[in-house]
Amino acid sequence: MNLSDRQRKIVFGVLVVVLAAVGVYLTVASPTRHEPSHRTARPAPVSGGGPAAPASPPQGITAQVNAGNFDIYRLLPFSQQEFATAADTAQKFVAAYGTYRFDEQPDAYAARLRPLVSEQVAQQVAQGFAAPGIRQQRQQEQTVASCTATLDQVRDIGNNSIIFLVTGKQRITKAGGGGDDSKQWAVTVARDGNALKVSAFEPADVGQAGDTGGGGRG
C-alpha cells in the first residue's frame, strides 16, 4: 500500500503516542505487580534461642586495668545498686522465712514474705507453713522462732539472677524449752518485672555442695 507523505507522518505520530503510553504503563505498573513477591520473599524475624540478654548489659572496660580503681560492676550484668538490692532481698528473706509463731496463720506468714518473693515462692512457703504435721507440732509445743541472717557468699551470677549463700540463725522457744539453730541457704534473686525478688531457695548443701567451699553449715 502506497502512502502519501502526509499519511506517513500521521501514522508515525500515532505510533509514537502508542509507544509512549505503553512505556508509561510499564514504568508505573511494574513495581506494583512485583511488590507482593518481594514481601513474600523477605525472611521473617527469627527469635533467638540462646540465653536471655541481661537487663543491665555490662559496660566493659577499655582502659588498662588498675587495681587501685578497678570497678568490677562494669563487668557484671547488675549495677552496684541492683547488686545491693538483690543482696538485701536475699538476707531479709532468710530472716523472715525463719521467723514465725505457732499461732500465726499461713496467709499472714506468706503476706510478710510476699514483697520479697515471686508469686510461686509465696505459694510454696505458704503451703510449707500450713503442712498439717508441722503446724500441729508447732501448736502443741507453742513454738516461737526469731531469725537473723548473714550474707556469706555469692555462689553464681547469671544474666538476670544472682545466687547468694545466706545463713539463718534462729532463736527458738517452746513450751518445754528452746535453743538455737543455724542453717545455710542458697537463695536465687532474679529480676521480676522492675523488681528483684527471690525466685528459688534450697539448703546450700543440696545439689551444689562443692560450690560452697565446704558445704552447708548447721
Score class of each variant (00 low, 15 high):
His34Asp: 12
Glu119Cys: 00
Ala122Asp: 07
Ile72Tyr: 09
Thr27Gln: 10
Glu35Asn: 12
Val22Asp: 08
Pro132Val: 00
Tyr109Pro: 08
Thr148Ser: 15
Gly177Asp: 00
Gly128Tyr: 05
Thr32Arg: 13
Val46Trp: 11
Val206His: 10
Asp103Val: 05
Ala84Lys: 12
Glu35Cys: 02
Ser47Val: 14
Ser79Asp: 04
Val125Trp: 06
Asp103Thr: 06
Gln64Glu: 15
Tyr100Val: 00
Ala41Val: 09
Leu3Pro: 04
Cys147Tyr: 08
Pro203Lys: 13
Ala131Met: 10
Val117Gly: 00
Ala204Glu: 07
Val18Asn: 03
Thr32Met: 10
Asp180Gly: 10
Gly215Ile: 01
Ala200Glu: 06
Lys197Arg: 13
Arg74Asp: 12
Thr40Arg: 15
Gly193Met: 06
Phe102Trp: 14
Tyr100Leu: 09
Gly216Val: 03
Pro132Trp: 01
Gly178Glu: 01
Ala63Phe: 08
Pro132Tyr: 03
Gln136Ala: 15
Asp71Ser: 06
Pro106Trp: 05
Gly176Thr: 13
Ile157Glu: 01
Ala96Arg: 08
Leu116Ile: 01
Phe129Trp: 10
Gly214Arg: 02
Gln124Ser: 09
Gly207Ile: 11
Pro54Cys: 06
Gln123Lys: 13
Val17Ala: 14
Pro203Arg: 14
Glu104Ala: 10
Lys169Gln: 15
Gln81Tyr: 07
Asn2Tyr: 10
Val125Gly: 02
Asp181Phe: 14
Arg135Lys: 12
Ala126Pro: 03
Thr212Ala: 11
Phe12Gly: 14
Thr89Leu: 05
Val16Gln: 10
Gly128Ala: 07
Ala195Gly: 03
Pro43Glu: 04
Ile72Asn: 03
Ala95Asp: 05
Phe70Gly: 04
Thr150Asp: 14
Tyr109Lys: 09
Leu151Val: 12
Gly168Leu: 05
Trp185Ile: 06
